[in-house]
Simulated scan of single mutants.
Amino acid sequence: MHVADLTEELVAIPSHEDESAAGEFVASWLRDHTDAAVEHDDHGNVIAQKGPGSGESLALVGHHDVVPPDESQVDADGSYVVERREGRIHGRGSADMKGSVAAAMLAFAAADAPAEDELVFASFAGEEQGGVGCRAAIEDGFRVDYAVVGEGSTGYSAPGVTDVAVAHKGRRGSTIVAEGTAAHASEPDAGENAIYRATDAVDVVRGLDFPSTEVLGHELSGSVAVTEIDGGSAWNVVPERCEATVDERTVPGERAPLDRVEDIEGVSWRVDQDLPPMACGDADFADAVCDAAADAQDGAPEQVVKPHATDAGWLADVGTDCVVVGAAEPGEAHTADESVSVDVLERCQRIYESVVESWLA
């Protein structure tokens, strides 16, 4: 089966509110085309395994959920619009990341079962909701030694080149809460202005250094930014409460000391979301995947870093050495005209097959 045809079948299945149909499609296809042990678990994850698992394990990893489609990406009957034109497949989830899932399915199906080790295919649910499927699988005991995660890595070092991401940033979203005492605005000294306290906290955030680290010789720099502020109840009332939202892009092993805002009277700080960053700790594995990527294309792939969090962060957090290799290009995912190159899908299939073959050798 050609990767473009499998991609189109998978993209056509709605999976932004309920990914169960897409998961069942993946699971059924794997049962029909492989002798692997295939599970479609209660969380919506699809996990297939080849080999006895007495040695090391390698996984090809993706996700089959998508973000809500644009209205132009949905037919009247609720199915997704899928079009192939000018060498690209258009449709919600084509780039992020059903195309790479299809390439990984085909590579997994083509691979021989390891004699001692374990080859795994995993497509998780709920990646777009903070990695809930991957996290649930980990809680249930999912562990692999190495993983190739099929999120986008094409076009980072040069247009059209599929690179190998050896690290990516995480995201910590948090809220600064400033509390004061309400009073009539004609007598401001009778109260404690929560907005003033919040702006003092914002000044603390502005003065923080961005976290940074190095991964396999590559510099990875984070960021911290106040992105929302909300406070006050009326034009003539000294506000008693004000909140500010902070977006922090984290790097492995480092966090900005945002708790310093709590040194200000009346100010507290809470973490609302913490998606972990990823760093590959095995240079030989990263080099081997980069060699496979070089063999699969005319361009010269490089080891790069990604700005976006993926399920690789959750896997890395429990000891998996991950790299990210996938067809999506910067700016393609989550757009009203999302698409993926058929040529790059074929390339990713070759890369995945080569990685598996060299790992099994």
Score class of each variant (00 low, 15 high):
4 A>L: 03
4 A>M: 04
6 L>S: 15
11 V>F: 06
15 S>A: 14
17 E>S: 15
22 A>S: 12
23 G>L: 02
24 E>A: 00
26 V>L: 01
32 D>R: 06
33 H>D: 02
34 T>V: 01
40 H>P: 01
46 V>K: 07
46 V>M: 04
47 I>A: 13
52 P>C: 11
52 P>I: 01
54 S>V: 01
54 S>K: 14
55 G>P: 14
57 S>G: 15
58 L>G: 10
59 A>R: 15
59 A>L: 02
62 G>N: 13
62 G>T: 13
67 V>R: 11
70 D>H: 08
72 S>V: 09
73 Q>W: 09
79 S>P: 14
82 V>N: 07
88 R>M: 09
90 H>V: 03
93 G>E: 11
94 S>Q: 13
96 D>P: 12
100 S>D: 14
101 V>S: 06
103 A>W: 06
105 M>D: 10
109 A>R: 02
115 A>H: 07
118 E>A: 15
119 L>V: 13
122 A>R: 15
124 F>H: 13
127 E>F: 05
127 E>A: 12
129 Q>T: 07
129 Q>A: 14
130 G>L: 04
132 V>Q: 06
135 R>Y: 01
138 I>G: 07
140 D>K: 10
152 G>M: 12
152 G>K: 10
154 T>I: 05
157 S>K: 08
162 T>H: 03
165 A>Q: 09
167 A>M: 03
168 H>I: 15
171 R>Q: 12
173 G>Q: 05
177 V>F: 02
192 E>F: 02
195 I>F: 00
196 Y>F: 13
199 T>E: 02
205 V>S: 12
214 E>I: 01
215 V>H: 04
215 V>F: 03
216 L>M: 05
217 G>M: 03
218 H>P: 00
220 L>K: 11
220 L>I: 00
223 S>Y: 02
225 A>K: 10
229 I>W: 03
230 D>M: 04
233 S>F: 02
242 C>P: 06
243 E>K: 09
246 V>Q: 02
246 V>N: 11
248 E>M: 10
254 E>P: 05
257 P>Q: 09
262 E>P: 08
262 E>D: 04
263 D>F: 08
266 G>L: 08
268 S>I: 00
268 S>A: 15
269 W>E: 02
270 R>G: 11
271 V>K: 07
273 Q>Y: 10
273 Q>F: 05
279 A>W: 00
282 D>R: 00
286 A>R: 07
287 D>Q: 14
288 A>K: 09
289 V>L: 04
297 Q>F: 05
299 G>M: 06
300 A>C: 08
301 P>F: 00
301 P>G: 04
304 V>W: 03
305 V>D: 06
305 V>R: 07
306 K>R: 15
309 A>R: 06
315 L>R: 05
316 A>K: 04
316 A>M: 08
316 A>C: 14
317 D>Q: 11
319 G>R: 04
320 T>C: 07
322 C>T: 10
322 C>V: 09
325 V>L: 13
325 V>H: 08
329 E>T: 12
331 G>T: 15
335 T>H: 06
337 D>E: 02
340 V>N: 09
341 S>P: 11
345 L>G: 10
345 L>S: 11
348 C>G: 09
350 R>G: 08
353 E>L: 01
359 W>Y: 04
